[in-house]
Design a protein around this nucleic acid. Structure first.
Length: 759
DNA sequence: ATCGTTCGAATGGGGAGCCC
DNA sequence: GGGCTCCCCATTCGAACGAT
């Protein structure tokens, strides 16, 4: 529901509470949170409700609870959580990695009271994927220290007595790179002026090779986030000194504000570096009132920038802010809450409402996706929203489309030029909100002026009949995805997007091949299967370079890219991901890869599956290795089975032939491949002391991550390794600082085991 | 002119675990 | 077993940048 609807509900609740105070929950009165909860909307209420659930059911596992402070005998114990609110800067996120020079052991031995960490590298996009390496630029950005000193006392005792003595000690600092608005405006003016003068010159002396700048006209920046991004990604200029200076100047305009420090920085005994405020003090960050925390540790004196702008560095009136972020400040609770794949779970963003505008619907076109999904897209009269022109917006599917545009009578068509309300969701994505009935344009009965809202009966690209995703229970057609049911490779848009997917960065990682280039190569008969790029004959590379839009350089680059992949090889999970099997994305590919280890094993499994009788009643029979894999269910197995029976299987085999597909190794974080010793263990069925157990891990397990431990438990026959303790739990393995779960286990009489014994 | 990348949200799904 | 939450998967949009 929209923020407006939510606020309306909150107001109604307030009214009801005043009218019937006898129904107020005890926690609302006690917590003192009720005011903020209603005022700040979602964030407040979601936190309140989660803490209320933990107090109402005695055995539920609240995320963390500071166990020392459980001296309160009240059954309605509330966990006190402090929330810090900061502005959400609109910039480019940056991940900084700092590492000690020496191994960890020597740091302790030297009787230092500080650890120094040096900036190793900086990359855009910190989570999971490695973004672009921008280390060189980052070193010149104001607010990014080259070295950080941390007091040893800030490290937890478990870290100090860690077994990993011969590892270096590293932390990751995440933050936002921004260009202050004043600088942005100044740059914009400068560029506009420069453009006027250069265009004036070029009118007369077009031929003169100008020495000051490249021949392309300098376009002015349109918004400060993109400008920051552009400056950040700008590479080191090779040639003239002049450009070098200009580049350095631009870089020095950027500023960095940290919002998260993670890695091995842990609280010690819950005292040191506990709340946000303490964290600030210990690393000499800004005070709590400054909102954006600035990482500005001494030791590295940044050259102070030109004092043209004497404003306070914490005056965020000079920054673009697109909302605010509410964060849990206690480090222990933050650590317990952890991260999802994309973002921390201890922070919630509350964004400013998006601007909306009115446009007109000109047409609805149907796009064909890689999996055959037919997606309706609205073609709109161009309108300006938040400084950009909107002309298209996805309508997701035909059920959703009808709900938005269907009108009062559930029409199956809509007149052209009908006004629609649109906005940019999150200030980025064009979105059609609703139809505004009552057009001032009368289109009459002209058939061309009416736009159909019905899904097509056949694929607009290849003419194959369509199917509708059958949702398991609901028979309603709302929201169903319409799909092209024909052979994927005979449907042009599907063939192109399949190849695009196979060459994408997370798959085979071939650069220089966009969708349009792939289309071009397919039309010219150079490309049909992914493997073709690796089997290209020498002469054909020349032919490609001769195609329109190509050149010697681009041809050579593409060839270089493919040869690099061929020689360096790719991991098994990337190989599997590149096949584009439905329901088998990046993560699932890793799961599958970790089940088979080698391509050979994987292909053999597909082969045997292909020969299986489809009528088999046992769901996992075609893929016994996947049976106990968490995260892989019947639909995925079905999808793999379907793939094994298509012609694409032989294409996959060819690809495996010409590529060096690497065995998965333990470098992968979660659910990584099996090491040799483990796989022999797993094949030895007799060695399963925990057969059928449900095993829960809690506390820190020396020497291994929790996911590693969970995997090993499964090797030992464990049935599942859930995250919390319940009645059905058979065994709890506890390490240092295992708090609540251990207590619960003892209450429930579940068997427990010390982590060292487990190891 | 093209390519790859960045920012972000919305849709409807599958898989898994927990509570009742 | 139904209801619910959380994570993962696929798909869509546009502007700006450096490099080519």
């Amino acid at each position: 529901i929209s923020d407006d609807e939510f606020d309306a509900l909150v107001r109604r609740e307030e009214e009801l509470e005043q009218k019937y105070p006898e129904f107020l929950h005890a926690w609302r009165i006690e917590s003192g949170l009720d005011q903020t909860a209603t005022r700040s909307g979602r964030i407040g209420s979601s936190l309140v409700s989660s803490s209320s659930s933990s107090s109402s059911s005695s055995s539920s596992s609240s995320s963390s609870s500071s166990s020392q402070s459980n001296d309160n005998t009240n059954t309605n114990t509330l966990i006190s959580i402090s929330i810090i609110t900061e502005p959400k800067l609109d910039g480019v996120s940056l991940s900084l990695h700092y590492e000690t020079k020496e191994e960890f052991s020597s740091i302790i031995d030297d009787d230092n009271d500080e650890v120094s960490l040096d900036l190793r590298w900086a990359s855009t996009r910190g989570d999971g994927k490695i973004g672009q390496d921008v280390t060189a630029t980052a070193k010149q950005i104001s607010g990014i220290p080259l070295r950080i000193q941390l007091p040893l006392s800030s490290l937890s005792s478990s870290q100090l007595h860690n077994n990993n003595v011969n590892k270096t000690f590293a932390i990751e600092v995440r933050g936002e790179v921004v260009l202050p608005r004043s600088e942005f405006l100044r740059l914009q003016l400068e560029r506009e002026e420069e453009n006027i003068t250069t265009t004036d010159n070029s009118d007369n002396t077009n031929k003169t090779v100008n020495s000051t700048s490249s021949s392309t006209t300098i376009t002015s920046f349109s918004n400060s986030r993109n400008a920051a991004s552009g400056i950040l990604l700008r590479k080191d200029p090779k040639n003239p000194e002049e450009e070098q200076i200009q580049s350095n100047e631009l870089r020095s305009l950027l500023q960095f504000y940290a919002y998260d420090i993670s890695g091995l920085l842990q609280p010690r005994d819950n005292n040191r570096i506990n709340t946000h405020r303490d964290e600030d003090d210990s690393t000499n960050l800004a005070t709590a009132t400054t909102t954006a925390t600035k990482l500005n540790k001494d030791g590295t004196k940044r050259q102070s920038r030109s004092s043209s702008s004497p404003k306070s560095e914490y005056d965020w009136g000079d920054f673009d802010v697109d909302g605010c972020v509410h964060k849990v400040s206690e480090a222990t609770i933050k650590a317990a809450m952890g991260y999802s794949m994309k973002s921390p779970k201890w922070a919630v963003a509350h964004k400013f409402p998006a601007q909306s505008a009115v446009s007109r619907l000109l047409d609805i076109v149907v796009q064909v996706g890689r999996t055959g999904a037919l997606t309706p897209v609205a073609i709109l009269e161009p309108v300006e929203v938040n400084g950009v022109t909107i002309q298209r917006a996805t309508l997701h599917n035909f059920g959703h489309l009808k709900e938005i545009l269907g009108g009062d009578n559930d029409d199956d068509k809509i007149p052209k030029y009908e006004p629609v309300l649109i906005r940019r969701a999150g200030d980025v994505i064009p979105q059609v909100i609703k139809r505004i009935q009552g057009s001032d344009v009368d289109v009459g009965v002209d058939k061309d002026k009416w736009i159909s809202l019905e899904p097509p009966k056949s694929c607009p690209a290849c003419g194959s009949p369509v199917t509708y995703d059958t949702s398991s229970s609901s028979a309603s057609s709302i929201g169903q995805v319409t799909r092209c049911n024909g052979p994927p490779l005979l449907c042009p848009p599907r063939a192109v997007t399949s190849l695009k997917h196979a060459f994408s960065r997370d798959a085979l990682d071939i650069t220089g091949l966009s969708e349009s280039r792939i289309q071009q190569l397919m039309d010219a008969d150079f490309l049909r299967y992914p493997n073709d790029i690796f089997q290209m004959e020498d002469s054909k590379w020349g032919d490609i370079a001769a195609l329109p839009g190509w050149g010697e350089k681009s041809g050579k680059n593409l060839r270089g890219s493919s040869e690099k992949v061929a020689t360096n090889g790719i991991t098994l999970s990337r190989f599997i991901f590149s096949l584009g099997i439905r329901h088998v994305g990046k993560h699932t590919s890793e799961l599958v890869a970790s089940s088979y280890g080698t391509v050979e094993a994987f292909l053999v499994a597909l082969d045997t599956a292909a020969q299986e009788n489809t009528e088999s009643s046992e769901q996992y029979r075609p893929f016994p290795q996947l049976q106990n894999k968490l995260g892989i269910g019947p639909v995925m197995v079905e999808s793999l089975l379907a793939f094994s029976k298509t012609a694409e299987l032989s294409a996959a085999k060819d690809l495996a032939e010409s590529l060096n597909v690497l065995e998965e190794d333990v470098v992968v974080d979660e659910d990584s491949s099996e090491t040799d010793s483990l796989s022999t263990e797993s094949t030895n069925k007799s060695n399963q002391p925990w057969k059928g157990f449900r095993v829960v891990f809690t506390g820190s397990l020396d020497g291994m991550t929790r996911s590693e431990a969970q995997r090993i438990a499964k090797q030992l026959g464990a049935k599942s390794t859930p995250g919390s303790v319940s009645k059905s739990t058979d065994l709890v393995v506890y390490g240092e600082k295992g708090g609540k779960k251990l207590e619960q286990a003892q209450e429930l009489g579940v068997t427990t085991m010390y982590a060292q014994d487990f190891i």
